[in-house]
Write a protein that binds this DNA or RNA. Sequence first.
DNA 1: ACCCGTGTTCGCTG
DNA 2: TCAGCGAACACGGG
Length: 293
Amino acid sequence: MPELPEVEVAARNLRRWGEGRRVRAAGCSEPRILDAVVHVGDKVRTEPVDPAALGALVGTRLGGVERLGKNLLLAFKRGRKPAVGVWSHLGMTGKWLRRAPADPPPRFSRVRLDLEGGVTLHYVDMRLFGFFRLVPDAGFAALPALAALPPDPLAGGIDTARLTARFARIGKPVKVALLDQTLVPGVGNIQDSEALWRAAIDPRRRASSLTPAEVRRLARAVIASFRHTLRAFAADGADGGGADIEYVEEPGTRNPFRVYDRAGIRCPRCHVGTITRIVQAARSTYFCPRCQK
DNA sequence: ACCCGTGTTCGCTG
DNA sequence: TCAGCGAACACGGG
């Protein structure tokens, strides 16, 4: 599921469910999902840790939830001081769910956090491509992998001059290039196809061939697609202001995408071309060969 | 049984 | 040295 819009939904849910609450207990049923940031001199490494390391969370309070691209950053505090952070990446199949403490864990629950007030959070991830990473002192700013990312597109917009300069040095197809999280954090394989379709740019063109005007159009299209998907989740997910936002593959929700996984339909813009699936870098791309130039 | 998959990293090659 | 490419990770669903 998770590209930027889904991760934004997860961030909002976690704030609503858990912000301000103290951690009573923490457990992990799948150690492969767990690791921790370790500082060695001025180097930063990650290494696997035992589930017992989750003990660092017990007694702390969830102080804040931030999202940067597809990364969720949870800061836990003791009193006013940062105690420990969790860098949660949802990988391909990750999600956060809320349950009552006595409920059976959801299938593929990997980490559970029992919070005060009868709230139990489960980090669920069938395929284990995500991670649950402990960060000493919630010192996210000191992590090179996060520092390398530009501001989140929904919070800080997209620096199109910078993006144009980066694209100019990339020979790969623009569709493949845009999956690099250091360009526009949060774009995944679906939003990539959606944004290129909105911008009417052929996904097969080399990134270096885009004009500055086209890069600006693409940047606007990325943000428009993010917002459109986010609105669709909120509307479809029976949220309406109260209930939890759900995910697209769950029953009763509509596929909000214009071209992704829609090979064979008439193009929703030109109504002449046929949405076509091609494979680039071993990933599906959907586009309209007639109006994407 | 076989192929596919919303993400990311690693190793090989030119 | 590095951009680019394919494989690998894990596991359910069609």
